[in-house]
Design a binder for these strands. Structure first.
Lengths: 128, 128
DNA sequence: CTGCATCCTTATGGATACTG
DNA sequence: CAGTATCCATAAGGATGCAG
């Protein structure tokens, strides 16, 4: 955290940074995309769809998205418990932008990868 | 980094994640936006425009963007040295998407902030 | 089934000082 | 001027176990 520069910092008043900081976490966008593809999905289903994620990290991701109001969490007080997640309207409104970003990524990925390789080869970037 | 799961992981084959991982760093998008607003800009100018960033982090950010081919670095072999940074075509092509993301953020920021506050207060999700 | 409690490793960012 | 070199603090992510 910054110390006592709570108003002048360009980054603090920058809304985009605030948003991207959340969406830039490792799994957030993927979770949103998965949620956008179905009405609702259970926690365990999501775990299966993303094999590499631990339940701890998944629940953290979902909780953050829920806190931001992008995701809804619905609990069915059954035994065993059943919890369904779905996108809110705000969450849905983000999907097209993610799609554009995905298209951009797909379109430019090859060039980017080539560039990275070339860049690293020239020794400009350190490798340890 | 992952260990030896270089093919099965959904996240590894996900191009979007790869991209967002870079753009999601603290200053990357801001740097791109600043670069998009001028033809070229010197390192020291950039430092002044982002008072909170250290030169180390700025140069790291720029180096990563350069490695990806989003930013060009042009060195003038003068004394003292002069280095100018500017966006490449690929870099420019990303700007509209960033703008959309910014608009989305501005539009939904209030709702998001309200939700966060409410969420933190209740400790859990809100009551309807 | 859901997901928190722990503990741990690593990546990111920052402060400061110092060169070509 | 344009960075690097260190050293350090913190946060993100992951592994495992257990509880409601």
């Amino acid at each position: 955290m910054q110390k006592n520069r709570n108003n002048n910092s360009i980054i603090e008043i920058c809304p985009i940074r605030n948003i991207v900081a959340r969406l830039g976490t490792k799994w957030a966008l993927l979770v949103i995309v998965i949620l956008s593809e179905q009405e609702a999905i259970r926690f365990s289903e999501m775990c299966k769809l993303i094999p590499d994620i631990s339940s701890k990290v998944l629940s953290e991701t979902l909780k953050t998205l829920e806190a931001d109001g992008l995701v809804t969490r619905k609990v069915y007080p059954t035994v065993p418990p059943k919890v369904e997640y779905s996108l809110t309207d705000i969450g849905h409104s983000l999907v097209p932008i993610i799609q554009e970003l995905t298209e951009w990524a797909l379109k430019n990925m090859e060039a980017i990868m080539n560039n990275r390789e070339k860049f690293e080869k020239t020794g400009k970037h350190e490798d340890k």
